[in-house]
Protein backbone atom coordinates (compact mmCIF):
# COMPACT_ATOMS: atom_id res chain seq x y z
CA UNK A 1 0.00 0.00 0.00
CA UNK A 2 1.23 3.52 -0.78
CA UNK A 3 -0.14 6.99 -0.27
CA UNK A 4 -1.37 7.31 -3.86
CA UNK A 5 -3.33 4.08 -3.72
CA UNK A 6 -4.78 4.97 -0.32
CA UNK A 7 -5.79 8.44 -1.53
CA UNK A 8 -7.22 6.83 -4.64
CA UNK A 9 -9.33 4.39 -2.65
CA UNK A 10 -10.48 7.20 -0.33
CA UNK A 11 -11.41 9.31 -3.37
CA UNK A 12 -13.40 6.37 -4.75
CA UNK A 13 -15.10 5.88 -1.39
CA UNK A 14 -15.86 9.62 -1.23
CA UNK A 15 -17.42 9.54 -4.69
CA UNK A 16 -19.74 6.71 -3.68
CA UNK A 17 -20.69 8.47 -0.44
CA UNK A 18 -21.34 11.75 -2.29
CA UNK A 19 -23.65 9.96 -4.71
CA UNK A 20 -25.57 8.19 -1.93
CA UNK A 21 -25.78 11.44 0.04
CA UNK A 22 -27.09 13.32 -3.01
CA UNK A 23 -29.79 10.75 -3.62
CA UNK A 24 -30.74 10.44 0.03
CA UNK A 25 -30.85 14.21 0.70
CA UNK A 26 -32.59 15.27 -2.49
CA UNK A 27 -34.68 12.06 -2.58
CA UNK A 28 -33.89 12.06 -6.25
CA UNK A 29 -31.49 10.55 -8.77
CA UNK A 30 -32.00 13.27 -11.38
CA UNK A 31 -29.00 13.69 -13.60
CA UNK A 32 -27.50 10.36 -12.61
CA UNK A 33 -27.06 7.61 -15.19
CA UNK A 34 -28.51 4.32 -13.96
CA UNK A 35 -26.63 2.52 -16.74
CA UNK A 36 -23.27 3.66 -15.42
CA UNK A 37 -24.29 2.43 -11.98
CA UNK A 38 -25.29 -0.95 -13.42
CA UNK A 39 -21.93 -1.18 -15.18
CA UNK A 40 -20.14 -0.34 -11.92
CA UNK A 41 -22.04 -3.10 -10.13
CA UNK A 42 -20.96 -5.47 -12.92
CA UNK A 43 -17.36 -4.23 -12.57
CA UNK A 44 -17.29 -4.94 -8.83
CA UNK A 45 -19.09 -8.27 -9.13
CA UNK A 46 -16.70 -9.63 -11.76
CA UNK A 47 -13.60 -8.20 -10.10
CA UNK A 48 -14.23 -9.31 -6.52
CA UNK A 49 -15.19 -12.94 -7.14
CA UNK A 50 -12.00 -13.87 -5.27
CA UNK A 51 -13.48 -12.17 -2.20
CA UNK A 52 -13.80 -15.46 -0.33
CA UNK A 53 -11.08 -17.46 -2.03
CA UNK A 54 -8.12 -15.15 -1.38
CA UNK A 55 -7.64 -12.99 1.71
CA UNK A 56 -5.28 -10.02 1.35
CA UNK A 57 -6.14 -7.77 4.31
CA UNK A 58 -9.05 -6.62 6.42
CA UNK A 59 -8.93 -3.31 4.56
CA UNK A 60 -9.08 -5.04 1.18
CA UNK A 61 -11.98 -7.27 2.17
CA UNK A 62 -14.06 -4.56 3.84
CA UNK A 63 -13.58 -2.16 0.92
CA UNK A 64 -14.59 -4.86 -1.56
CA UNK A 65 -17.71 -5.66 0.46
CA UNK A 66 -18.59 -1.98 0.72
CA UNK A 67 -18.10 -1.36 -3.00
CA UNK A 68 -20.28 -4.32 -3.94
CA UNK A 69 -22.99 -3.49 -1.40
CA UNK A 70 -23.07 0.24 -2.22
CA UNK A 71 -23.23 -0.36 -5.98
CA UNK A 72 -26.27 -2.63 -5.65
CA UNK A 73 -27.86 -0.30 -3.09
CA UNK A 74 -27.42 2.59 -5.55
CA UNK A 75 -29.18 0.58 -8.26
CA UNK A 76 -31.97 -0.23 -5.80
CA UNK A 77 -32.38 3.49 -5.04
CA UNK A 78 -32.40 4.44 -8.71
CA UNK A 79 -34.65 1.75 -10.10
CA UNK A 80 -36.93 1.26 -7.14
CA UNK A 81 -37.07 3.79 -4.33
CA UNK A 82 -36.49 6.93 -6.39
CA UNK A 83 -37.61 5.40 -9.67
CA UNK A 84 -39.96 8.32 -10.36
CA UNK A 85 -37.01 10.70 -10.52
CA UNK A 86 -34.90 8.53 -12.81
CA UNK A 87 -34.42 10.35 -16.11
CA UNK A 88 -34.43 7.37 -18.48
CA UNK A 89 -34.98 9.57 -21.56
CA UNK A 90 -31.56 11.15 -21.19
CA UNK A 91 -29.93 7.94 -19.98
CA UNK A 92 -30.01 6.41 -23.42
CA UNK A 93 -26.46 5.13 -23.95
CA UNK A 94 -26.53 1.52 -25.21
CA UNK A 95 -24.68 -0.56 -22.58
CA UNK A 96 -24.27 -3.48 -24.98
CA UNK A 97 -21.99 -1.27 -27.10
CA UNK A 98 -19.61 -1.36 -24.14
CA UNK A 99 -20.14 -4.80 -22.60
CA UNK A 100 -19.83 -6.83 -25.81
CA UNK A 101 -16.55 -5.37 -27.19
CA UNK A 102 -15.04 -5.33 -23.69
CA UNK A 103 -16.10 -8.94 -23.18
CA UNK A 104 -14.47 -9.94 -26.46
CA UNK A 105 -11.27 -8.04 -25.67
CA UNK A 106 -11.04 -9.69 -22.25
CA UNK A 107 -10.99 -13.07 -23.98
CA UNK A 108 -8.28 -12.00 -26.41
CA UNK A 109 -6.00 -9.90 -24.24
CA UNK A 110 -5.42 -11.13 -20.69
CA UNK A 111 -2.65 -12.32 -18.39
CA UNK A 112 -3.90 -15.90 -18.18
CA UNK A 113 -6.71 -17.76 -19.91
CA UNK A 114 -8.56 -18.77 -16.75
CA UNK A 115 -12.18 -17.92 -15.81
CA UNK A 116 -11.32 -15.73 -12.79
CA UNK A 117 -8.53 -13.97 -14.67
CA UNK A 118 -10.70 -13.30 -17.73
CA UNK A 119 -13.47 -11.94 -15.50
CA UNK A 120 -10.93 -9.73 -13.71
CA UNK A 121 -9.66 -8.47 -17.08
CA UNK A 122 -13.24 -7.90 -18.25
CA UNK A 123 -13.85 -5.87 -15.09
CA UNK A 124 -10.74 -3.73 -15.64
CA UNK A 125 -11.63 -2.99 -19.26
CA UNK A 126 -15.29 -2.35 -18.40
CA UNK A 127 -14.44 0.06 -15.61
CA UNK A 128 -12.42 2.19 -18.01
CA UNK A 129 -15.53 2.90 -20.13
CA UNK A 130 -18.29 2.50 -17.53
CA UNK A 131 -18.54 6.28 -17.01
CA UNK A 132 -19.46 6.90 -20.66
CA UNK A 133 -23.25 6.66 -20.16
CA UNK A 134 -22.96 9.22 -17.35
CA UNK A 135 -20.81 11.62 -19.37
CA UNK A 136 -23.14 11.09 -22.33
CA UNK A 137 -26.12 11.97 -20.13
CA UNK A 138 -24.43 15.15 -18.86
CA UNK A 139 -23.68 16.15 -22.45
CA UNK A 140 -27.30 15.47 -23.47
CA UNK A 141 -28.80 17.43 -20.59
CA UNK A 142 -26.12 20.08 -21.11
CA UNK A 143 -25.54 20.51 -17.39
CA UNK A 144 -25.05 18.70 -14.08
CA UNK A 145 -25.95 19.55 -10.50
CA UNK A 146 -22.97 20.78 -8.51
CA UNK A 147 -23.12 17.76 -6.20
CA UNK A 148 -23.04 15.49 -9.27
CA UNK A 149 -19.95 17.26 -10.57
CA UNK A 150 -18.24 16.72 -7.19
CA UNK A 151 -19.16 13.05 -7.50
CA UNK A 152 -17.62 12.87 -10.97
CA UNK A 153 -14.50 14.74 -9.86
CA UNK A 154 -13.89 12.33 -6.97
CA UNK A 155 -14.57 9.37 -9.24
CA UNK A 156 -12.19 10.60 -11.94
CA UNK A 157 -9.51 11.48 -9.40
CA UNK A 158 -9.50 7.96 -7.96
CA UNK A 159 -8.12 6.35 -11.10
CA UNK A 160 -5.76 9.29 -11.73
CA UNK A 161 -4.31 8.64 -8.26
CA UNK A 162 -4.04 4.95 -9.13
CA UNK A 163 -1.82 5.92 -12.08
CA UNK A 164 0.55 7.60 -9.60
CA UNK A 165 0.28 4.44 -7.49
CA UNK A 166 1.40 2.32 -10.50
CA UNK A 167 4.34 4.64 -11.16
CA UNK A 168 5.29 4.38 -7.49
CA UNK A 169 4.96 0.55 -7.47
CA UNK A 170 6.97 0.27 -10.69
CA UNK A 171 9.92 2.14 -9.25
CA UNK A 172 9.74 0.87 -5.67
CA UNK A 173 8.22 -2.61 -5.94
CA UNK A 174 9.07 -3.46 -9.54
CA UNK A 175 5.35 -4.17 -9.95
CA UNK A 176 3.79 -3.47 -13.34
CA UNK A 177 0.43 -4.58 -14.73
CA UNK A 178 0.10 -3.39 -18.34
CA UNK A 179 -3.63 -4.21 -18.56
CA UNK A 180 -4.53 -2.21 -15.47
CA UNK A 181 -2.26 0.71 -16.47
CA UNK A 182 -3.55 1.01 -20.05
CA UNK A 183 -7.20 0.73 -18.95
CA UNK A 184 -6.57 3.20 -16.12
CA UNK A 185 -5.08 5.73 -18.54
CA UNK A 186 -8.03 5.37 -20.93
CA UNK A 187 -10.42 5.79 -18.00
CA UNK A 188 -8.68 8.94 -16.78
CA UNK A 189 -8.43 10.43 -20.27
CA UNK A 190 -12.22 10.15 -20.61
CA UNK A 191 -12.52 12.55 -17.65
CA UNK A 192 -10.14 15.19 -19.04
CA UNK A 193 -12.89 17.26 -20.64
CA UNK A 194 -14.90 17.10 -17.44
CA UNK A 195 -11.86 17.90 -15.26
CA UNK A 196 -11.29 21.05 -17.35
CA UNK A 197 -14.92 22.16 -16.94
CA UNK A 198 -14.89 21.30 -13.23
CA UNK A 199 -11.75 23.31 -12.52
CA UNK A 200 -12.66 26.29 -14.68
CA UNK A 201 -16.33 26.44 -13.67
CA UNK A 202 -17.43 24.55 -10.59
CA UNK A 203 -14.43 25.63 -8.50
CA UNK A 204 -15.35 29.22 -9.35
CA UNK A 205 -18.84 28.71 -7.99
CA UNK A 206 -20.50 28.42 -11.38
CA UNK A 207 -22.78 25.58 -12.36
CA UNK A 208 -21.34 22.89 -14.60
CA UNK A 209 -22.87 23.51 -18.00
CA UNK A 210 -21.53 22.19 -21.26
CA UNK A 211 -21.35 24.54 -24.21
CA UNK A 212 -24.61 23.80 -26.03
Amino acid sequence: MNVFRLLGDMSHLLAILILLLKMWKTRSCAGISGKTQILFALVFTTRYLDLFSSFISIYNTTMKLFFIASSYFTIFLMYSKFKATYDSNHDSFRMEFLVVPVGGLAFLVNHEFLPLEILWTFSIYLESVAILPQLFMVSKTGEAETITSHYLFALGSYRLLYIFNWVYRYYFDGFFDLIAVVAGCVQTILYCDFFYLYITKVLKGKKLSLPA
Binding site: R5, D50, S54, I56, K64, H111, W120, N165, D177, A180
Partner: peptide
Amino acid sequence: EDVLDIHDEL
Protein backbone atom coordinates in the same frame (compact mmCIF):
# COMPACT_ATOMS: atom_id res chain seq x y z
CA GLU B 1 5.82 -13.91 -18.29
CA ASP B 2 5.34 -13.68 -14.56
CA VAL B 3 1.63 -14.16 -14.11
CA LEU B 4 0.13 -11.88 -11.52
CA ASP B 5 -1.16 -14.73 -9.38
CA ILE B 6 -3.17 -12.45 -7.18
CA HIS B 7 -4.57 -8.98 -7.77
CA ASP B 8 -4.05 -7.08 -4.56
CA GLU B 9 -5.55 -3.79 -5.73
CA LEU B 10 -9.19 -2.84 -5.43
